[in-house]
C-alpha cells in the first residue's frame, strides 16, 4: 500500500477522536444520572403514592 503512514494516521485520527468523545459523553451521562438519582427521590415518592 502506498503512502501507508499517512493513511494510518488519518484513519487513526478519524476513529480515535470520535471514540474519545463518545467515552467522555458516556462517563458524563453516567455521572449525571447517578447524581440526579441521589438528589431527586421524587419518582420514588410518586410511585409510592399510587
Amino acid at each position: 500500500m502506498t503512502h501507508l503512514p499517512y493513511i494510518v494516521a488519518a484513519y487513526a485520527l478519524a476513529v480515535l477522536v470520535p471514540a474519545a468523545y463518545g467515552l467522555a459523553a458516556m462517563r458524563r451521562l453516567r455521572l449525571a444520572r447517578s447524581r440526579l438519582a441521589a438528589l431527586d427521590p421524587r419518582p420514588a415518592r410518586r410511585e409510592a403514592r399510587r
Binding site: 459523553a25 451521562l29 438528589l39 431527586d40
Partner: peptide, 18 residues
C-alpha cells in the same frame, strides 16, 4: 454524540436547580 451530551446537560441543569 450530540444527543448523549445534551441528555447529560439536561440532567446537569436539573441537578444545579435542585
Amino acid at each position: 454524540l450530540v444527543t448523549a451530551r445534551t441528555r447529560a446537560a439536561v440532567m446537569e441543569r436539573r441537578i444545579r436547580a435542585l
